[in-house]
């Protein structure tokens, strides 16, 4: 985010565009919000076995990424999971 963005309220046109992009990514990947929610919960469960994670900062979504083979884009699962503390195993 640039400095100018801090002072400017986001226009509703841009909000619409951003929302639409997100909706279309999951539409195109044929992945319902319920399935996303399940994936998210399972990931939290697995990771939590080993580390304590910051649930507030958690960001898991499906985005588009450049594919290696051809020139198109493919859906990819993007997960940003902030770690609070590594659990010490005794």
């Amino acid at each position: 985010m640039s400095l100018a963005d801090l002072f400017r309220k986001k226009s509703s046109g841009n909000i619409a565009k951003d929302r639409l992009k997100l909706v279309l990514v999951s539409d195109r990947a044929n992945c319902s919000p319920e399935i996303m929610e399940k994936i998210k919960n399972d990931i939290i469960q697995v990771i939590s076995k080993y580390v304590e994670i910051d649930l507030e900062g958690l960001d898991i979504k499906i985005t588009q990424t450049e594919s290696d083979g051809n020139n198109g884009t493919v859906p990819a699962l993007f997960a940003n999971i902030p770690i609070k503390e590594v659990k010490n195993k005794n």
Partner: peptide
């Protein structure tokens, strides 16, 4: 509306 940013 496009000009003032309220429409795509």
């Amino acid at each position: 509306m496009v000009k003032r940013g309220d429409m795509m």
